Computed example of a mutant assay.
Amino acid sequence: MAPTFSLPAHFLGRPASNTEAAFSVVGIPLDLGVTNRSGTREGPHAVRRASRMLADGDNPGGWNDLSDLSVADRGDFALVLGDLAASLRMIEDQAAAFGHLMSIGGDHSMTLALLRALTKKTGPVGLIHFDAHIDTWPDSFGQSLAHGSPFFHALEEGLVDPRRMIQIGIRSPMPKEVHDWTTARGVTILSAEEAHLRGPVAVAEAIREVVGDGATYLSFDIDAIDPGQAPGTGTPEIGGLFTWQVMAILRRLHGVRFVGMDVVEVAPAYDVSEITALAAATILWQYLSLHAPAKM
Rank of each mutant, 00 (worst) to 15 (best):
S6V: 14
A9W: 11
A9C: 11
P15V: 09
P15H: 09
A16T: 04
S17P: 00
E20Y: 07
A21D: 09
A21F: 10
S24A: 13
G33C: 07
G33L: 00
V34E: 03
P44Y: 07
V47N: 03
R48L: 09
R49F: 09
A50Q: 07
A50G: 08
A50V: 10
S51V: 07
D56I: 02
N59V: 06
W63H: 10
D68V: 06
V71L: 12
A72P: 06
R74W: 02
A78I: 04
L81R: 11
L84D: 05
R89Q: 11
A96G: 02
A97S: 10
H100T: 09
L101V: 05
M102H: 06
G106P: 04
S109A: 10
S109I: 01
A113C: 02
L115W: 01
A117R: 00
A117M: 00
T119L: 01
G126C: 02
A132F: 04
A132H: 04
A132M: 02
H133R: 01
T136L: 00
D139I: 03
S140A: 15
F141Q: 13
F141M: 09
F141W: 08
S144G: 02
G148A: 13
H153W: 14
H153I: 03
L155A: 05
R164K: 14
R164D: 08
I168F: 12
S172G: 05
P173V: 01
H179P: 01
T182R: 00
A184G: 15
G186C: 00
V187C: 02
T188M: 02
T188L: 06
L190F: 12
S191I: 08
L197I: 02
L197V: 04
R198Y: 06
V203F: 05
V203K: 05
V203P: 03
A204T: 05
A204M: 04
E205R: 02
A206V: 05
G214L: 03
A215G: 01
I222Y: 10
I222A: 07
D223M: 03
A224D: 11
I225A: 06
P231V: 07
P231K: 02
P231S: 00
P231D: 06
T233Q: 09
G234D: 04
T235W: 01
T235F: 06
P236V: 03
P236M: 03
L241Q: 03
F242L: 12
F242R: 12
W244M: 00
Q245S: 04
M247Y: 03
L253V: 08
G255N: 10
M261Y: 11
V264T: 15
E265Y: 13
A267G: 14
P268R: 00
P268F: 15
V272C: 14
S273K: 14
S273T: 14
S273E: 15
E274M: 15
A277Q: 07
A277G: 15
A277F: 15
L278K: 08
A279N: 15
A280M: 15
T282V: 12
I283W: 13
W285E: 13
K295R: 14
M296N: 10
M296G: 10
